[in-house]
């Protein structure tokens, strides 16, 4: 479902990620092992897949973003056609 632009929960979560990018990120620096970066991935995942699946995808991505994962190019999977 890609009518996520009207999903208020997803929008709120995206605002949260935006807030992170503008406040905390400057402090801790960008240390992502992936492309796109986790926060960008989160924004895209929430837009593409809505609040629920978007959050799950983002959580999965952040958990994978650790020194024991090789990292690399890891785009958001495309939304299923309905």
């Amino acid at each position: 479902m890609s009518a996520a632009s009207v999903d208020p929960v997803a929008e709120a979560l995206k605002l949260g990620i935006r807030a992170y990018q503008f406040t905390l990120r400057p402090f801790i620096g960008a240390h992502c092992r992936f492309h796109p970066h986790c926060s960008a991935y989160g924004l895209e995942a929430l837009s593409e897949h809505g609040a629920l699946r978007g959050t799950a995808l983002t959580a999965r991505r952040v958990l994978r973003c650790n020194p024991w994962n090789p990292g690399g190019y890891d785009p958001v999977p495309p939304a299923k056609k309905t």
Binding site: C32, R33, C65, N66, N69, P70, G71
Partner: peptide
């Protein structure tokens, strides 16, 4: 991979 990752 030079980066430590977001999780840590």
């Amino acid at each position: 991979n030079p980066a430590a990752g977001c999780l840590p």
